[in-house]
Design a protein around this nucleic acid. Structure first.
Lengths: 207, 207
DNA sequence: ATAAATATAGTAATCAATTACTATCTAGAT
DNA sequence: ATCTAGATAGTAATTGATTACTATATTTAT
């Protein structure tokens, strides 16, 4: 029985480790039922030590949401930045989003859980503002797609944006249910192809 | 302080009332954190009385899932039964599903929550078998749609089924997040129109 | 009177958070 | 280079609240 004492780690790094631990745990259990004891155990610390770095549990959740928001948006921006075609941009965003979720299954669960909760927490505010910016970016891309003739000019922009986000959320939900993130990576391009067909201007009359 | 005693209600009806109470509560709070005390309060009973009608909490969840499964499938079947066109069938199923969720926002939350949980509960088994049957019914309809020429013969059946379910789940998620079920009812036909465009055989070359 | 349905009042377990204390790191003086 | 004081990061034990669940008494309908 070698009860090794955990290394003393600087506060900021310890906070980062905590965020990772929560996202890790959220990948395999309901975010709402992740206890501070479970977090502590996962990062090999005692439960009380957590509160040396966060004033309370809400603060942990806020830090997690901040991480998710920052990293997800960064990956989507990076994927889309060098692409000029709106359709190409949308596909890149779609696949980047899926890849991010496949890498961090806990992330969407934290997001959903927080957004659905009745309580207006700091974490929820963060999540809401991220969703708002995401939707705005999407609408802009769709509008420019119509302008340059890639998308049908009869296209309902709001509905197309809703379906884009919904398609991702649906894919994610089904993969979380199946517990298989690799399947999602494989399905994503095929599903997006149908979506694209739904919003594109017809090229030829072929069925 | 008029502490009125609740009427004595036969056990079976009391169980039905319990199920309704849970679905009601799930509409505005995380299903996983619905306590037996909260259920009891909502149906104006003491907490202990619940356990005169159910052996344990899992049994309550199983009863709820049974209710959801039965009622959702019934509404979808009813909506589709008199329609011969596969595309028409799919639209009817889609809108019936959305209408059901709009009537019972707690239902999808119970479903998601149960399916995502790591624990293999009786409720989870029920939910899984429902999803399986739903997907099978969907694939059959899509296949017959291809056969009768309503849908593109190049259509990826699996992806189309995944997107159908995903579209619903996505719409539901966004409505739960927005806390506005009426918006979902309004958005559903517009979103489904894009999906339909994505799977349909082209009628004319118009953009 | 009897049986079913409910209230009352408990249980042990678990939760987030706090406390008293200890170990370790680091900066500045020598 | 080394010592030491203060700051930092940890443990272990405990708190009051809340959880699912239970034992028993009481009410109500028939």
């Amino acid at each position: 029985m070698t009860k090794t004492r955990p290394k003393k780690i600087p506060a900021e790094e310890r906070r980062n480790i905590t965020v990772e631990a929560v996202i890790d745990l959220a990948g395999s259990s309901n975010p709402d039922s992740i206890t501070t004891a479970a977090i502590a155990k996962h990062m090999k610390l005692t439960q009380g030590a957590i509160f040396r770095h966060f004033p309370n549990k809400d603060a942990i959740w806020k830090a997690v949401m901040s991480w998710v928001s920052k990293n997800l948006m960064a990956r989507i921006d990076l994927a889309a930045e060098d692409i000029t075609s709106p359709k190409g941009k949308m596909e890149a965003m779609f696949l980047a989003h899926i890849a991010f979720v496949a890498d961090h299954p806990g992330a969407p669960r934290m997001l959903f859980g927080e957004l659905q909760g009745a309580r207006q927490t700091p974490a929820k505010r963060l999540a809401q503002s991220m969703m708002k910016e995401y939707a705005a970016r999407l609408r802009d891309t769709i509008v420019s797609g119509k302008a340059c003739g890639e998308l049908r000019e009869t296209l309902d922009v709001e509905a197309a944006a809703t379906l884009f986000i919904g398609t991702i959320q649906g894919l994610v939900m089904q993969s979380l249910i199946a517990g298989d993130m690799d399947k999602m990576r494989a399905d994503a391009p095929r599903v997006f192809a149908i979506y694209l067909h739904g919003i594109s201007k017809a090229h030829d009359a072929g069925g």
